[in-house]
C-alpha cells in the first residue's frame, strides 16, 4: 500500500474520506485536489462529498465520472445549470465555451449571473463558480464563439458534448463537429414555458431532423423569452443524460426527443 493509500485508510470513516483529509493529502503529498481525488477513487475510497450519490452510482462509476471530460457549449441559461450540476456530480474535467459577458437581461434566469458580475465573462465566471463548489474539478474556460472552424480542436478531448447554445447556426456546426469526431451530443433547447431534450450518438442524425429544414433564424424563444425555471428543468434532463452516458446506467433519449411543457405540465416522448 502506498503512503497515500495508507493516509486514506487512516483518515477514512468506512470507505468515506472527508474533504478536510483530501485537502490535507494535497498539501502533504504535493498533489492537486483533483489528483488526490483521482487516486482516492481509483483505490476504492469515496470522497465524502459524493456520499449521497452512492445509492445511484458505485465508487467505480464515480471514478469513471471523475476521469471524464464534458464540453458545455454555452454558459448562459442552460449551460450555467449544466455546469453547476456536472461539477457537483463529480465530472472531473469540464470545458466551458462562451464568448459573452453577463448583461442585465440574463439576471432573471442565468444561475451564474448576478449584478456584481454584469460585464464579466460567462466562461470565466463558470470557472470561478466550479472552483468554489468543487475545487477537485478542472474547468477549462474558453471565451470564444464555437464554430465549425475552431470546434474540432475545442471539443476533441470531450467524452460527451452538451448543447446549451442560443442559436441554430452554432447548433448545426456543433452537430457536424460531434458527428465527425464521433462524440455523443446531448441537445437541449428552451422557449418560454417549453423545452426539449434529446441525445444524439455518433451515426444518429437527430439535429439534422430537428433543424435541417429550417434556416438559421430563431425559434419561438424570440417571442416567448425564457423565465427562471425552464432552463433549470431542461438542463437537469441534459445532465441526467450525461450521467447515464458516462456511467452506462439507464435508458437514454436516443431516437426520440422529450418535449417538455411546463404550462400544461405535460411531457411528450416524440420518436425521431
Amino acid at each position: 500500500m502506498s503512503a497515500l493509500e495508507e493516509f486514506f485508510a487512516a483518515e477514512a470513516s468506512g470507505d468515506l474520506v472527508p474533504w478536510k483529509s483530501q485537502v490535507l493529502a494535497a498539501d502533504m503529498f504535493s498533489m492537486t485536489l483533483g489528483e488526490v481525488e483521482e487516486a482516492m477513487l481509483k483505490a476504492g475510497w469515496l470522497p465524502g462529498r459524493y456520499q449521497r450519490n452512492r445509492q445511484m452510482l458505485s465508487t467505480a462509476q464515480q471514478h469513471t465520472l471523475f476521469r471524464s471530460c464534458v464540453a458545455v457549449i454555452g454558459c448562459g441559461g442552460l449551460g450555467g445549470y449544466v455546469i453547476e450540476q456536472l461539477a457537483r456530480l463529480g465530472v472531473g474535467r469540464i470545458i466551458a465555451i462562451d464568448p459573452d459577458t453577463f448583461e442585465e437581461h440574463n439576471l432573471n434566469r442565468q444561475i451564474l449571473s448576478s449584478p456584481r458580475l454584469l460585464g464579466h465573462s460567462k466562461a470565466l465566471t463558470a470557472k470561478a463558480r466550479v472552483n468554489d463548489i468543487n475545487p477537485a474539478v478542472t474547468l477549462v474556460a474558453v471565451e470564444k464563439a464555437f464554430d465549425g472552424d475552431n470546434g474540432p480542436a475545442l471539443v476533441a478531448d470531450a467524452d460527451v458534448v452538451v448543447d446549451a447554445v442560443d442559436n441554430v447556426a452554432a447548433r448545426k456546426a456543433l452537430d457536424v463537429v460531434c458527428r465527425d469526431l464521433g462524440i455523443p451530443l446531448v441537445h437541449g433547447a428552451i422557449a418560454g414555458w417549453y423545452g426539449h431534450v434529446s441525445t444524439q450518438f455518433p451515426g444518429d442524425n437527430i439535429i439534422e431532423k430537428l433543424y435541417g429544414h429550417t434556416d438559421d433564424s430563431p425559434g419561438v424563444e424570440s417571442q416567448l423569452g425564457n423565465p427562471s425555471f425552464t432552463p433549470g428543468a431542461a438542463a437537469s434532463f441534459q445532465v441526467a443524460e450525461v450521467c447515464k452516458i458516462i456511467s452506462g446506467e439507464g435508458e437514454l433519449l436516443r431516437h426520440r426527443k422529450l418535449h417538455i411543457d411546463l404550462l400544461a405540465m405535460e411531457t411528450e416522448d416524440v420518436p425521431f
Binding site: 441559461g77 447554445v165 442560443d166 442559436n167 425564457n226
Partner: peptide, 12 residues
C-alpha cells in the same frame, strides 16, 4: 397529425 413549434434555444 401532430405539430410542434420550432424551439431554437436560449435567448441571448
Amino acid at each position: 397529425l401532430s405539430f410542434f413549434p420550432l424551439v431554437g434555444g436560449e435567448c441571448r
